[in-house]
Nucleic acid binder design. Sequence first.
DNA 1: TAAATTTGCAACCAATCGGTTTCAAATCAA
DNA 2: TTGATTTGAAACCGATTGGTTGCAAATTTA
Lengths: 108, 108
Amino acid sequence: MRRDIFQAIADPTRRSILTLIAVQAMTPNALAEHFDSSRQAVSKHLKILHECELVSQEQRGREVYYSLEIDKMKEIDAWLAPFRQIWEKRLDQLDALLINLKHEQHEK
Amino acid sequence: MRRDIFQAIADPTRRSILTLIAVQAMTPNALAEHFDSSRQAVSKHLKILHECELVSQEQRGREVYYSLEIDKMKEIDAWLAPFRQIWEKRLDQLDALLINLKHEQHEK
DNA sequence: TAAATTTGCAACCAATCGGTTTCAAATCAA
DNA sequence: TTGATTTGAAACCGATTGGTTGCAAATTTA
């Protein structure tokens, strides 16, 4: 199965799971309470998130605690970086424009 | 059709399209040359990207130039922001740890 | 030990996805 | 005007998705 992080975060339930476990590790049962779908559905989402290493498991008795692998999230940030440069550049250009405008007003 | 940016960037071809038109506006034909799939397939990807406002169109004669809507990309960044805080915080904690270690060594 | 709880897996299903081919409309060039 | 080019839409297709139910294994509790 071809899994990548972008496909993983495409689903809104999976994005919510990531947000929830960012605060603290949770079990599938505890997570399922936050959604309308069944525990098994949540379990399948967790499997996908685990396959692309966005979450890690810790077995504790018969319970399994899932926590966020924050380093993997950085890969999304890395893809976004060049685009961020574009809007930051445009912001810089706007700044330059405003400074120019100020100068012009000063010269009046 | 339920379109959102996260579903839009889930497909690798669509991510490539965004990267290509970030440099300069391009027509569907020009874009299609960069991929193995047909022009019509690329056109369908462009339709999806347009539906969720990640790209804009500019008709010029019989050609249509597609360009990136950089502001929409910020929405991905906005979703990522709280997670970024987590890894920056952890980096801060590591910094603090290293500073502590330095102090200890100094006291020796 | 027996019953209850927690979890993951398999089988199934309707809907969606990404691709194709075909076709029609609009614009440009000869 | 006629033919070529560019584009988008429609119909179709196999694969994938996200959901369900049922079941089995492992662990905890009574």
